[in-house]
Amino acid sequence: MSMQGRLQDVSVPDLVELARQMGEEVGVFIETAVGEWALYVRQGRVVHAQGPDVSGEEAVHRMLTLRTGTFRMEPGETPPVITIDKPWNALLLEALQHLDEEPEVHTQRSIPSIEEKEEQVMTRPRKTREIIAEILDELLETSTDIVGAAVVGIEGLIYSARFPLKDMDENLIAAVAAAIYGLSRRNIQQLRQGEFVQALIEGSEGYTLVRSINPKVIFVALLPKEVNLGMAFAEARTVSARLAEILQGLQ
């Protein structure tokens, strides 16, 4: 099953992790304003990477600095050549060591990205709900595994909601999601299973995912019946982490 989206929603390390779990051979292709990039995974190992004028480990290092662009992930893509023979963790560690030395690969955009907007928001009047709404819009535009989403406070406040069905009482949905969070959290406390991370409810026509963004705010996602749960979880994790940063900055 192929997947596509934007790097603003799923980071390159997360993409590689997904590719490593997907199957025998997977290709990750990234298109940015400064060129096209490709990374090949075989049996969970990154075996080749190629970018503009660079290949092998160096290409991996550069790819890990990409922040904007579109990607697609294709199973069954055979690497044209083998240029890397290192475990992924070692590659990642080396890349992290290089990050301080390497210049970040920027794409040229006339319209500010969401990340840039997130920075801008710190210097202008705080409109938390607008920023969150934009993030949810982007998520739903690019995701094939999440068809509806909302960010709600545990006291039932709706920061933003994007649900496919009309005539939904968003206030009630928020209150019920908060109750699911409260019950799940209490259950985990009683059974001494650590901290609440997420709850998944399966219906005959789809799923509802409730995930903690921080102790006061939760992310709610609607997933279709035919969903890749691993992908959906990864997307929910990524967007929740991003929302957590925004909410932290605006508190």
Partner: peptide, 16 residues
């Protein structure tokens, strides 16, 4: 006891 702080979610729905 059941919901913890999420009990506050009923403030709006009960009020409505």
């Amino acid at each position: 006891n059941m919901l913890g702080e999420a009990s506050l979610a009923v403030v709006g729905t009960v009020g409505q």
